[in-house]
């Protein structure tokens, strides 16, 4: 990524340029730069922002909690809603409720997420004044304790709903297909023949097996969800990693861009590790 050189540097005088290059170690051979970079990552050092001159580690770690808050809330809500609705639709396959649900989720999938955010801001923020439209908390209000939590929650609601609308469809679709598949299995028929109630068949026998592909999809979608967060954080001026990345890209602040990608990658890897722990709980065939 070092080979991408921002416009600013072109405008600098040669002395300034040399100074900047020296400071960021850009005058050394590319391979050495790369080794230095890897070495410093291992030490927890992601370099310094070209813009603010602050350490990237600090900038990123300041933003990361907000993205985590947003993403984790989103994943939990999307999974619960997607799984519940997917199960419901699969159980009533081909009936009216299935068709209605399918169309709702196709609709969700087809809306540009940033646009949903804009509409929310216009209606529930600017017009009705129910929710704050900017940032993650009212920094200047000086809230403490419980008030602060409420304040943060209020700021979280609209971005989360927007993100859920963006991410829930794929979970719903996966759950529905997977559930339909499982419901066709012989062990479901067996469970019904044993005289178990529909509820029991659905939740103990079908659900557990149908959830396996959903875990995969949720984890595969981590990247997509983080990507979605980029744009939604921008709409709501939410101070997360996504917005940081966007600012860094427009400012050509490469160390920050690298830092963001590094953190996002870590998150995706972490998600996959978590998935590896969840699989054996659901499926005894995976040990």
């Amino acid at each position: 990524m070092k080979f991408i050189v921002g416009e600013d540097i072109v405008l600098m005088s040669s002395e300034e340029k040399a100074e900047v290059l020296e400071k960021h170690g850009l005058n050394k051979p590319v391979f050495e730069q790369y080794l230095n970079y890897i070495g410093s990552i291992l030490k927890g050092d992601l370099g310094y922002s070209y813009r603010s001159q602050k350490p990237v580690t600090d900038i990123v770690s300041e933003r990361l909690p907000w993205t985590l808050l947003l993403s984790i809330t989103n994943i939990i809500l999307s999974t619960i809603i997607g799984v519940a609705m997917g199960t419901w639709a699969a159980w009533n396959r081909g009936k009216k409720i299935d068709i209605v649900l399918n169309n709702i989720f196709v609709f969700f999938r087809s809306m540009p997420s940033f646009w949903i955010g804009m509409i929310f801001i216009a209606v529930f923020g600017a017009r009705l004044g129910w929710f704050p439209i900017f940032g993650a908390q009212s920094v200047w209000a000086g809230y403490m304790g419980f008030e602060k939590i409420v304040d943060i929650a209020m700021h979280l609601i609209m971005p989360t709903i927007t993100l859920v609308i963006l991410s829930v469809s794929s979970i719903y679709l996966t759950m529905r297909y997977s559930m339909i598949d499982v419901l066709g299995e012989d062990y479901i028929l067996m469970a019904k023949m044993k005289g178990l109630s529909d509820k029991k068949v659905r939740y103990t026998h079908a659900m557990r097996n149908a959830l396996i592909p959903v875990v995969t999809i949720v984890m595969l979608n981590m990247g997509y969800m983080v990507g979605g967060a980029t744009i939604i954080e921008t709409v709501f001026s939410y101070p997360g990693m996504g917005r940081l990345l966007f600012e860094a890209v427009t400012n050509r602040d490469y160390p920050v861009i690298q830092g963001c990608f590094f953190m996002i990658t870590i998150c995706v890897i972490a998600a996959n590790i978590i998935a590896d722990f969840i699989y054996p709980l659901l499926d005894p065939r995976v040990v």
């Binding site: 196709v106 609709f107 999938r109 809306m111 646009w115 804009m118 509409i119 216009a122 600017a126 439209i133």
Partner: peptide, 27 residues
């Protein structure tokens, strides 16, 4: 535009059209 009434004629229509076009492709 979202701070004033302008969202109704400035923000709503393009987004709805995107949604409609995407839905038609999806169907």
């Amino acid at each position: 535009a979202f701070l004033s009434d302008a969202w109704i004629w400035w923000i709503l229509p393009p987004g709805l059209l995107i949604t409609l076009l995407v839905i038609s492709f999806a169907y």
